[in-house]
């Protein structure tokens, strides 16, 4: 496990560096579970096409 620690740390750092969507930031969804596309269904459907995954699309106002 210790051998992989630097790699995990690097992955963690990369994850931290991933830019937040401005809306994600505005909603304080700073640590959501899963990868979310905010207000951009076209990007989400394109990713679904590329990955073969189905889409889960949520309509939810700002809380």
């Amino acid at each position: 496990m210790i051998r992989f620690a630097p790699v995990l740390l690097l992955l963690g750092a990369l994850a931290q560096d991933k830019p937040l969507h401005p809306l994600q930031e505005a909603l304080s969804d700073l640590d959501p579970e899963g990868e979310w596309h905010y207000n951009n269904p076209d990007a989400g459907f394109a990713e679904a096409k590329a990955t073969g995954k189905p889409v889960l699309l949520v309509f939810r106002c700002t809380p």
């Binding site: 899963g34 979310w36 596309h37 951009n40 990713e47 889409v55 949520v58 939810r60």
Partner: peptide
């Protein structure tokens, strides 16, 4: 298992 999309308006 999904690609997740959130629409707020």
């Amino acid at each position: 298992k999904f690609v997740c999309i959130r629409i707020v308006q």
